[in-house]
Amino acid sequence: MSCDHQVLADHVCDYIEGKAPPVIRARCDEAVQQCAHCRDVHAQALEFYELAGKWQQQEVPHWNRARFVVPPARLPQGSWPAWAALAASLAAIVLVLLRVEISTTDGLLISFGGSQTDARVQELVAAELARHDTAQELLLDARLDDFAADQVNANQLLLARWQEVARAERRQELGLLMSSWQSQRFEDQQEFNNQLTRLTNDQIENNQYLNVLLQNAAQSRRN
């Protein structure tokens, strides 16, 4: 049979979901039975349907759902924050105009257009960048260490849980084995008791029969 694979290509999902009309279903049946390629595609679709059903929903990580959508509340005109902002701006302008420099004994220097040269500024910036780099490296190392430690803990925890589950399963199996052994032993004991009872009864009957025979023999001897 020559198959152009078109029927299954168009209807493979409807065919699997049972939504294909009877005529199409019959043609799909025929294609799947007689064409190896169509059979493969059908099997693949089935496998993927099954695989898709195994997807486990992942929890959404924490995120700020309203960060980008809710505009900040507008301050009413003439409120104190607006006046404070205006005052700060004016103060900054005055500081720049007067080229004020504020320095501390620790080496901190805040200059508003003061006497610092470009070279000095670049030197300070370079020093600050180097310090920042070092801090970043340290931070990165610390985070990597933390991550490694977390992973080790997680693995240990996992191993411990696995062992716990395995032990519980072994305990359960052992319990089942013990109970079945005990019930078998009980049945054997009962069987043994029954046989013993039967044997005893037989022996009593035999004794009674022998007594009767002996009595009869004695009787006939007397006669």
């Binding site: 195994k54 997807w55 486990q56 693995n155 925890l157 996992l158 849980r161 696995w162």
Partner: peptide
Amino acid sequence: APDTQNPDRVYEQHNDN
């Protein structure tokens, strides 16, 4: 590491995803 579920089952689900 899972908290309460069977670790085998959790690992299997993780593997499927």
